[in-house]
Design a protein around this nucleic acid. Structure first.
Length: 300
DNA sequence: AACGAAATCAACCGCAGTGTT
DNA sequence: CAACACTGCGGTTGATTTCGT
């Protein structure tokens, strides 16, 4: 038995709002406020809408201080900067942009800004070669190296917003490499890790050897499913990584250059997961690309 | 002009957290 | 303290618009 629905779905209107509905909602909120109760509001306002729908319409569109229209370059930089620090906490990011909603920021990031960043037109102000945040957001020069150890994600106790990869236990050793660094090949949009692979590793759970599709399993307690790459990173210290057989066969000297894509975008991925290397017991393998954002994920 | 593909963004969904009874 | 109600959030969907051929 699931949770009771917030409204009678059979008797509420869905889909785009008409100008009349907008006017009714705006008039009501202007004169009465929300009363702190969105569930009861539609009935009082004479709307056949779900309370949640009214709230969303008000917050994302009708609110008087909403800013419509394109984002400025300054806003781009703020979003990139904050995304680099906190990931997809859209409401927190939107709160730093006057008149923008979380939905706006999220849509803007997913449709435009992420692509801009990949194209090198903007970059996250996350960390630099010497670990100091730059004062302005500038594209990374080709082959610029980034010292992961100076990333705020795993270096600064005051700025750590995502758990660093530090977990180690009897079965799944998991250490941070102290000597690696990352470069970004802007020609091929490749993120490349250099050096120190031997000390940065996840020991693979050998039970997953035969899996073709389950690239990632999570040992997250009490969770029925993990649906996104953010979740992987946030719970990464409980991960066991396995590989499709086809990729397991790729073993060569070149394979020591590698990265993992958590779907955050460069360099955020690296701050959380790229600086690692994994192996089967007694057999090193290191594919060049491990894209968790498309992985088939299930509870371990 | 017509069509399909890609991009956009408003709206919905389900879950987690918090307050209230 | 448990059950319930409600809000807020992030992820996803799908209708509409724009772009490219």
């Amino acid at each position: 038995m699931g949770r009771a629905p917030c409204c009678d779905k059979a008797n509420v209107k869905r889909g785009p709002w008409s100008p009349e509905e907008d006017a009714a909602l705006k008039t009501y909120v202007d004169s009465h406020g929300t009363g702190g109760n969105w569930i009861a509001l539609p009935k009082k306002a004479g709307l056949r809408r779900c309370g949640k729908s009214c709230r969303l319409r008000w917050l994302n569109y009708l609110r008087p201080d909403i800013k419509h229209g394109g984002f400025t370059e300054e806003e781009d930089n703020i979003i990139c900067n904050l995304y680099g620090q906190m990931g997809s906490r859209w409401s927190a990011i939107a709160s730093k942009l006057h008149g923008r909603t979380d939905n706006d920021v999220k849509n803007y990031w997913n449709t435009k800004l992420k692509k801009k960043m990949i194209a090198g037109k903007v970059c996250l102000k996350t960390f630099t070669e010497n670990g100091i945040l730059p004062s302005t957001s500038t594209p990374l020069p080709t082959n610029q190296s980034l010292n992961i150890q100076n990333s705020p994600f795993n270096a600064s106790p005051n700025q750590t917003l995502v758990p660093p990869i530090l977990e180690a236990n009897d079965n799944n050793a998991f250490t941070i490499d102290q000597n690696s660094f990352i470069s970004f090949d802007q020609t091929n949009h490749h993120e490349v890790m250099h050096g120190g692979a031997a000390s940065s590793r996840i020991n693979k759970n050998t039970n997953d050897n035969n899996s073709n599709s389950h690239m990632v399993s999570l040992s997250q307690e009490g969770s029925s499913s993990i649906s996104d790459s953010s979740s992987i990173a946030m719970n990464y210290n409980k991960c066991v990584v396995s590989q499709p057989q086809q990729q397991q066969q790729q073993q060569s000297d070149e394979s020591m250059d590698k990265f993992m894509d958590f779907g955050f975008g460069f360099p955020y991925d690296f701050a959380n997961g790229a600086n690692c290397h994994y192996e089967r017991v007694g057999e090193v393998f290191a594919p060049e690309w491990v894209d968790f954002s498309y992985a088939d994920i299930k509870p371990h």
